[in-house]
Amino acid sequence: MDIDDIKSRFPGKYDQHIEDMVNSLQHNKRVAEDAREPRGVVDRHSCSVEIGRAEQTELVNGEGPRMDIEITPHVGAGPFQLGMSFDDAMETARERGATVKHSPEGGRPPGKYVVKHSDVTLNFVLIFDAREQLDSVELWRFVNEDEDVNVSLDGLDVFRTPKKKLRREIERRGHTIDYNDAGFDGIADYNVILANASSQELPADPRTGFALYFDYLLVARKIAP
């Protein structure tokens, strides 16, 4: 996906979020490769993963593999609520069995912080603004198709529903989608972006040969001016 192409199709809309996402692509291969490593043992000494230009923090979650994440527009993703403070978000992660490792030590926002689970390859990225408030949350699709993970938006399984069907269902419910062949879909009244943004191999649509599912979701306080 080329940022200039997206900007030409959607002039003035979503610029900062698009830029952050595209800047993340060059590093996402490393995240996907790391996600494929065996998950039987939680590495408490692993280094932070760098995605994009901001400093990252890795959160290693020791909970079981079953994971249900509800995307609530204007509210957040699962336990991470938009607008919550950095300290509250870190405490929420710890309460869910996470170990927090900063890079650099004691690093504070603004920036991105990766939530990495021990038993599943779905990754959260928490994005904080200069006020140390949670501004948006990225979710990167799990790698293994048989993982017991469900990410839902308005009752729809985001990462297992074929893209065409998901678009139809969202539009049937009265929401407008700005989308193009580059794989970027903006749902303005949800403040949600869906995309194919990673380097991982996904099941292909037998008719088109393109990825059958989305592999990236962003929910934000605001994605349009």
Rank of each mutant, 00 (worst) to 15 (best):
H74Q: 03
A54Y: 06
G62S: 11
Q81C: 14
V60G: 08
G64T: 07
E58C: 11
P65K: 12
D68C: 09
G64A: 11
P73V: 00
G78V: 07
P65N: 09
L82I: 14
G64V: 04
I51T: 14
P73M: 10
M67P: 00
P73D: 08
F80I: 06
G62Y: 02
G52P: 01
I69A: 15
E70Q: 14
L82N: 03
E70S: 11
G64H: 02
I69W: 15
I69S: 15
L82Q: 01
G78L: 03
V60T: 09
A77K: 12
A54N: 05
N61D: 06
D68G: 05
N61V: 00
M67S: 06
I69D: 14
F80D: 06
E58V: 11
I71C: 05
G78F: 01
R66I: 07
L82R: 11
V75I: 15
P79M: 11
M67A: 08
V75M: 13
G52M: 04
L82Y: 08
G64P: 04
R53F: 08
Q56W: 08
T57F: 03
A77R: 14
V60D: 11
R66Q: 13
G78P: 04
E55A: 09
V75A: 14
T57A: 04
H74D: 00
G76M: 08
A54C: 03
G62I: 08
A77I: 13
N61I: 01
Q81P: 07
V75T: 15
E70W: 06
T72A: 06
T57V: 06
V75D: 14
N61S: 02
M67N: 03
G52T: 04
E58K: 11
A77W: 13
A54F: 06
F80T: 05
Q56G: 12
L82V: 05
G62F: 01
T57G: 04
N61G: 00
G62M: 09
T72C: 03
G76A: 09
L82P: 13
I71H: 02
T57I: 05
Q81L: 15
E70K: 12
P65R: 11
G64W: 00
H74S: 06
T72Q: 01
T57M: 03
I69T: 15
A54D: 07
F80H: 03
H74F: 01
D68V: 13
R66D: 08
T72S: 01
R53G: 02
M67E: 02
T57Y: 06
G62T: 09
G78R: 05
T72I: 12
R53W: 07
E58S: 10
G76Q: 10
Q81R: 15
E63I: 03
G64M: 09
A77G: 10
P65M: 09
G76N: 10
F80S: 04
N61K: 06
A77V: 15
I69H: 15
E70R: 12
Q81H: 15
R53E: 13
P79K: 12
D68P: 05
Q81M: 15
T72R: 10
L82C: 12
M67L: 13
V75N: 12
N61L: 03
G62R: 02
Q81D: 14
I71L: 10
L82E: 11
E63Y: 07
R66W: 04
E55M: 04
G76C: 10
G62Q: 06
R66Y: 11
I51W: 13
P79T: 05
H74V: 01
M67Q: 00
A77T: 10
G64L: 07
P79A: 11
L59E: 02
P79F: 09
E63A: 10
N61M: 00
